[in-house]
């Protein structure tokens, strides 16, 4: 019996920045925690999915956001209902932006799903750098490390909460980073975010199984993943100021 169904939206269009890595790490950590996992995918034109325990929507450039736009709007009610029921929706980069109220600037004029109470404004100064954020998502404060690569100012609505606070990098442009909605969140963190931040992955998994009455715990089988993630994080931490030639 499947304990956890992971749904990835638009794996090709919104999947050129290692977004599949977030799916892989959720599945792999869940399996090593003894859960039986299924991964499903939604592509443009598919019937709306019937169920999921955690949803991922990855990043893509404006051109592909346009290409999936009419399809993704069909998710307006479904994602909202799911999130209200406690199903985590993890949205990265462009995926987060299209889940906001809309994307404007630089010729972008895309209505969003309004899933997050925020608006994305393209045309901010482009950032391509290592990224460090602290987040209260799912418990006590957690430091996240990864990469950010975007040119978006992300403006939160009056009542919206950020996903975290920027420690190093650009984030939303005002010291805050991303947006949170219950067990769901959006972030510009790439790298990908979840493999590099196993503690965050574990919190997503915990939220996902909590809804169905299941349990997830880190076991010995996670040791190598955790060791490599820790070392990767140390290197990123030591190179936060590294300047990449963004041209």
């Amino acid at each position: 019996m499947t304990d956890l169904t992971i749904l990835q939206l638009y794996p090709e269009q919104l999947g050129v920045s290692g977004d599949g890595g977030n799916v892989v790490t959720l599945a792999e950590r869940a399996r090593r925690g003894g859960l039986d996992v299924a991964v499903t995918e939604h592509r443009p034109g598919d019937a709306l999915p019937a169920a999921a325990d955690v949803v991922l929507i990855g990043s893509g450039p404006l051109s592909t956001l346009r290409a999936i736009h009419s399809d993704v709007l069909r998710f307006r009610e479904l994602l909202s209902d799911w999130s209200d029921a406690g199903i985590p929706v993890v949205a990265i980069g462009g995926g987060m932006e299209i889940l906001s109220r809309g994307i404007s600037g630089e010729g972008a004029d895309l209505e969003g799903l309004g899933f997050f109470d925020a608006s994305a404004h393209r045309g901010a100064q482009r950032r391509a750098n290592y990224f460090k954020v602290s987040t209260p998502y799912g418990g006590g404060s957690l430091y996240l490390l990864g990469f950010e690569d975007h040119a978006t100012r992300f403006e939160l609505g009056a009542g919206a909460s950020p996903f975290g606070a920027v420690v190093s990098g650009g984030g939303n442009g005002d010291g805050r980073e991303g947006v949170i909605r219950g067990a769901s969140f959006g972030t510009q963190m790439k790298g990908p975010a979840l493999p590099l931040n196993p503690a965050l992955t574990d919190r997503v998994l915990t939220a996902a199984v909590a809804r169905t009455g299941g349990a997830y715990a880190v076991a010995d089988a996670h040791a190598t993943l955790d060791e490599y993630a820790t070392k990767s994080r140390e290197v990123i931490s030591a190179n936060l100021e590294h300047v990449f030639k963004a041209m």
Partner: peptide
Amino acid sequence: TPDISWIYD
């Protein structure tokens, strides 16, 4: 190669 997120692809 700054961002290697793509190694997961």
